[in-house]
Nucleic acid binder design. Structure first.
Lengths: 241, 241
DNA sequence: ACAAAAGTGTTATAACTACACCCATGT
DNA sequence: ACATGGGTGTAGTTATAACACTTTTGT
């Protein structure tokens, strides 16, 4: 159907999409104590932005978010979390997109679908850094992981969107099994705590964290132990859902 | 400019609005231990729905919500809280609106603005029951307060929207001065507790609530006391922001 | 005097913090 | 043996819940 670099422009029939409505995905991954998110770089520009997309006329808003996630990562069945809808006038700035389209050999009319004003609903997803295969779309030549604290300058209000996603993730961290996708199936309490500390941006008490996690009842301790270093081997845990 | 029953249809130029994007307002009021919300009844039908509206092309999403609130209540400077954007396909059902328009003497084409599929962003507001003047719009002949637990059957997914607004209000109840608009300027601890119990749908411990509110530091105790009943007079409190 | 409801106090429990101590492991 | 770091235990603090007691007020 399409190659790995995504759809060709001429295959896109913008009439299939709802006008005015967009979605942006903040796709969180975690690797070596760093929280990362997928960022697109548009071709032949210094423009960076969140992976986003539009809503098909016969598609739920949530499904559009799942589809965008799939198109950029090939991941499916990932829980997506709607956190806010961005609709200020100040985010309406078609100029960068016009330049991007020009660089791709297009000369869009002023009323081209991609140059409209959009509301954008933000979703965040937690995905396995190792399982995701970042795939650029037809206007961009890379889709890469960036440290959440070392992002390039992003177009439009996308930095604000990431900030809001992070706030939402922090608020939800205790209500959801955050580690489920961000960590390996089996992990030590240390690894889980590192993840929490990275997300929350602060150190957590070691014994308190241990107790809290065990008391939450969401973890199963695997009989096995880990090895390698010159100290007591930690237990391995697994989420029980 | 327009009379109290709202804009006449022929004054509305739908080209001024963004397609595909709507907002719905859950306007909460409180009176005599009952949490209420404003509901529109469409003319000559048994159709009830939330007050809603669309987004002008030169207007922020938040501003559209404020405008809708103003148009239905004449209230301004009320803080509105965005809680969710509803975008499932199942909410797309233009038939009731087509009937409403017919009852109003219109014979809309199938692609009329009002018969499109919309995403709808939900906002809730807390307003002073006594200060709001409910005003119907041009398609409806009433805009009235209904007990949140005794609503008429609502069109589309509007019952779900109210439910989600209520959940959001409950989650935010401790972070915001909920009583600020829902109660009089000065109130007793009993009145504040009644409000909380109504919103949360459960009884709260009397002394615990008292302490929690006082310790929150958001209340000022007014020297004056209240009178009337055969028991100790309660103090009056006021929010200090 | 009494009932009613507000203000205040006491105690028990739970959750989190900080720190200490013990245990397993590789050098 | 020793350092390292994970597991566990012990106060101290704080927040909440449940209940009792005291105060004020009109009948």
């Amino acid at each position: 159907m399409e190659e790995h670099t995504g759809k060709k422009n001429y295959e896109v029939d913008w009439n299939e999409y709802l006008p005015g409505v967009a979605i942006d995905c903040v796709i969180f991954g975690y690797h070596e104590k760093v929280l990362k998110t997928l960022i697109l770089e548009y071709k032949e520009t210094d423009f960076f932005a969140l992976p986003g997309g539009f809503v098909l006329k016969d598609e739920n808003l949530d499904e559009a978010a799942s589809r965008v996630l799939f198109e950029r990562t090939r991941l499916q069945e990932i829980s997506l979390n709607q956190f806010y809808t961005f609709g200020s006038l100040s985010r309406f700035n078609p100029e960068p997109m016009r330049i991007v389209m020009q660089k791709n050999g297009l000369e869009p009319t002023k009323s081209h679908f991609l140059l409209q004003r959009f509301m954008s609903t933000g979703y965040y997803a937690l995905v396995d850094f190792k399982e995701a295969e970042p795939i650029a779309d037809f206007l961009s030549d890379s889709c890469q992981w960036y440290d959440i604290h070392d992002l390039p300058s992003l177009l439009w209000d996308h930095e604000q969107i990431i900030q809001k996603a992070l706030e939402s993730l922090r608020e939800n961290i205790d209500h959801r099994a955050v580690g489920l996708n961000l960590l390996d199936d089996e992990f030590t309490m240390r690894e889980l705590r590192n993840l929490y500390e990275t997300i929350l941006g602060k150190e957590l008490n070691r014994s308190g964290f241990h107790r809290k996690m065990v008391n939450s009842g969401r973890l199963n301790r695997i009989g096995k132990k880990n090895t390698g270093k010159a100290h007591r081997s930690p237990y391995l845990y697994r989420f029980n859902t």
